[in-house]
Design a protein around this nucleic acid. Structure first.
Lengths: 159, 159
DNA sequence: AAACACAAAAGAATTATATTCAAAACAAAC
DNA sequence: GTTTGTTTTGAATATAATTCTTTTGTGTTT
């Protein structure tokens, strides 16, 4: 967790741009694209990993294929002590919970949840959320359709 | 967009589980772990890609490293014709917008946005959102801290 | 139960990529 | 312009990806 200087130059940005798009692009291809030697790319990628700039590589799986057709956002009001997110950590432990954000305003959390169907959601709320102490209330928003869902960051172009 | 049958067996699930965790795991390693030949793994992975079960491989980049410290959710009420998400598509075109969901209730969208800072958010709302016709109102929720942020799906264990 | 048909896996051979390392190039500091 | 520390290159080697043929497996038909 060292607060290192992320010292990124234009080449790093290009690598990140490529990797963000396809994490399995091989060094040889990146090297070709950037006009460098593969070994140099390898060095840089390693460094990006070490410096925790590239956090991980993951495969994006089609939720439909796993019959996970329901997506919901749940606002959760909790009685956490300010600055200590006990409830937040408990929420994060639930596998169906993809995101937990501590949000401003109603001292609460915004949680993103993926379940098979409505029954799965009810189930999760009853069983998983129900077991967490400190939850005062919840408000659920159902997603009808997702137009875009990525985690790509905007990568700077110039210096 | 063919509505094929996703016909997944236990081996596929295991592959997905491994790939979801580390998309750069090589076939040889997966093969070792599953006690199969690398060529067989290759076949299966290819098939998973073809059938749009594995949608893409992406590198998760540390937002801090790109100075993207601000995360917000914006509820957008729009005057779209029911079932036609014109506004949704326009929202999706904004690079800082990572997610656009058509949500039940107030005929609106829930949008996830990542910007450098508060100024960047204001800027985005004024310039990008401001240019989209059909937006009636917005309500913004600021994320103070993110406890969990993944897109991992729950992969079935048994049949 | 034998024969057939199709799909998946294994194994060997080939091609491509990753990785290592010493030497060269570069950059910043003095 | 020399020193010092970094980064890149390029060649050598180790690993992995890929291809393809053979084998195995599964389910179906007769």
């Amino acid at each position: 967790m060292a607060k290192l200087e992320y010292n990124l130059d234009q080449i790093d940005y290009q690598i990140l741009r490529i990797m963000q798009d396809n994490a399995r692009t091989n060094n040889a291809d990146i090297a070709r694209e950037l006009g460098m030697a593969p070994s140099a790319i390898l060095e840089r990628v390693k460094k990006l990993e070490q410096k925790d700039i590239i956090l991980q590589y993951n495969a994006k799986i089609n939720p439909d294929a796993l019959d996970q057709k329901m997506l919901s956002f749940i606002f959760i009001k909790a009685q956490d002590i300010i600055g200590v997110q006990k409830v937040g950590f408990l929420l994060a432990e639930i596998p169906e919970v993809q995101e937990v954000h501590d949000i401003a305003g109603d001292d609460g959390y915004l949680v993103k949840v993926r379940t098979n169907d409505a029954a799965g959601l009810v189930d999760l709320m009853r069983n998983s959320l129900g077991k967490i102490e400190g939850i005062i209330s919840t408000r659920t928003t159902i997603v009808l359709e997702t137009v875009k869902e990525e985690q790509k960051l905007v990568i700077p172009t110039k210096k």
